[in-house]
Design a protein around this nucleic acid. Structure first.
Length: 488
DNA sequence: TTTGATT
């Protein structure tokens, strides 16, 4: 019965391999009747996941009608085309073959590929998925910035007017919650392209942070590249210096920042690093609880062995860094509050000649103050040192509950790196993320920092919440737990 | 200016 139906709609069926072919035909016929509007009524139907095969090493005297019988024993053929030279029409010795059923293609490949040699050929026949198949996700779209409440059906409705949707999947987490993105597979590249043109950036879903993203899904290669980049990012978070030297390394990092700050500070442009160094200086004052009080420019400047740093001097004038207000007016006297605070045996060296007040020295001094003001913080880092440092915390972006901070009112210039470094003194930062507007690549001035323990997170809140940078004050709070703020 | 998604 099914065979008859197929025979009627498909004049090319030859009645070979009828049993399995008709089964597939029936299934497809049924699904076809339910297919969304806009799907062309292609006959005969093939499986959505049908595989287009490349057939090689075909004698040039065989054309489609000669080849059919050979392949039909594995299932109903949807399409078989001998490749011909575009200009001369000459048989190129190969063909494309698509079965209605994916299964048939697999069977044919297993049975034939390199298994026999056709008459007149000196190499065995090739039966394998066409290149276009392995490459071929060019009709599959990645859709981002969906509302997390939207279902497959909602997404289908949004995309159905551009073509025949073969597949629509919302990406979900382990708990079944939508991740706000989806895959939509059309039956052709052109349909997918049409959907991109019409929908990408066209609207912003309620609750989404930016406009709808509609683009071709990654190919395998792109996916691999992305993975590598992610790995690199993971490694990058954990600065080798910090890992190797614990607090010592962190301190060296700060020195590097200071140097960088100085180098750009003179040009009038305030880099993220400079902003950070400046922030640290100010923060240091805050922590001391001595805003405007004598903060010591230090005689305690240390140059840890092996780390090159400029000669340290005291600062004769108040620190002022472009664009930053509220800096404490340090005075050139007194002692740093925490001389020799490093608990891992690193000591400050005596200061050298007190001279000039160039930006570098200012910055450097400020950073020293910062370091000096953080005995506890640096102590934490150094405590972690004797244990094997957690290098890559299993891909995780988030720490345990209570370890993740949400920070906003960040300076526009801050990126992930600056954010991390700002919080490094409070513990092991397992991730830091500044939100970036996908359209403009600009920071949205808020982000996340995750520690590996709640104590560090609390310490960071204590110290950094309300911390003034420029005209803004940081807000540092625990990240809302995932299940909070659910409408239902 | 207010909560990390991504094949």
């Amino acid at each position: 019965m099914a065979t008859l139906t197929n025979g009627q709609v498909d004049g090319t069926v030859h009645g070979v391999g009828v049993v399995s072919a008709s089964t597939n035909g029936l299934v497809n016929g049924l699904s076809h009747s339910h297919s969304p509007a806009g799907c062309p009524a292609t006959i005969p139907m093939k499986d959505h996941d049908a595989i287009k095969l490349f057939i090689g090493q075909i004698p040039r005297n065989l054309d489609e009608k000669d080849l059919r019988p050979l392949f039909e024993e594995f299932g109903k053929i949807y399409e078989l085309t001998v490749l011909k030279d575009r200009f001369t029409g000459m048989h190129k010795g190969c063909a494309f073959l698509t079965y209605c059923a994916r299964e048939s293609a697999l069977k044919a490949q297993n049975a034939l590929h390199e298994q026999k040699t056709l008459p007149g050929m000196n190499r065995p026949i090739q039966v394998k998925p066409a290149d276009s198949e392995s490459r071929g996700e060019d009709r599959k779209l990645f859709v981002g910035m969906l509302n997390k409440q939207q279902s497959e059906d909602d997404v289908r409705r949004l995309f159905e007017s551009f073509g025949c949707i073969e597949e629509c999947t919302i990406l979900r987490g382990p708990d079944g919650n939508s991740k706000g993105c989806a895959f939509v597979k059309y039956s052709s590249h052109a349909e997918a392209q049409a959907a991109i043109s019409a929908l990408h950036g066209s609207q912003t879903m309620p609750g989404a942070s930016s406009s709808l993203v509609v683009k071709f899904a990654d190919t395998d290669k792109e996916r691999t590249i992305r993975r590598m980049q992610q790995m690199a990012g993971q490694m990058g978070i954990f600065n080798p210096m910090a890992l190797q030297f614990g607090a010592y390394g962190a301190y060296a990092q700060v020195q590097q920042q200071a140097a960088l700050m100085a180098s750009v500070g003179q040009g009038g442009y305030l880099s993220p690093m400079a902003a950070f160094a400046a922030a640290q200086m100010q923060h240091m004052a805050t922590i001391n609880g001595l805003p405007g009080a004598p903060l010591t420019p230090t005689s305690g400047g240390s140059t840890p062995p092996g780390i090159s740093a400029p000669t340290v001097t005291s600062i004769p004038s108040p620190i002022s860094v472009n664009g930053f207000t509220g800096m404490p007016p340090p005075q050139a006297n007194g002692q740093p509050p925490a001389e020799a605070v490093f608990t891992n045996g690193i000591h400050h060296y005596p200061a050298q000649s007190p001279t000039a007040a160039d930006p570098l020295q200012q910055a450097y001094t400020g950073v020293q103050q910062y370091a000096a003001a953080y005995p506890a913080a640096y102590g934490q880092i150094s405590q972690a040192f004797p244990h094997p440092p957690p290098i890559i915390p299993q891909q995780q972006r988030e720490g345990p509950e209570g370890c993740n901070l949400f920070i906003y009112h960040l300076p526009q210039e801050f990126g992930d790196g600056e954010l991390m470094q700002m919080f490094l003194p409070f513990g092991n930062v397992i991730s830091s993320k500044v939100f970036v507007d996908r359209a403009t690549n600009q920071s949205k001035c808020f982000g996340f920092v995750s520690f590996d323990n709640p104590g560090s997170a609390q310490a960071a809140i204590q110290s950094m919440n309300g911390f003034q940078i420029g005209m803004k004050r940081l807000k540092v709070q625990l990240k809302r737990p995932k299940d909070a703020n659910r409408p239902y």
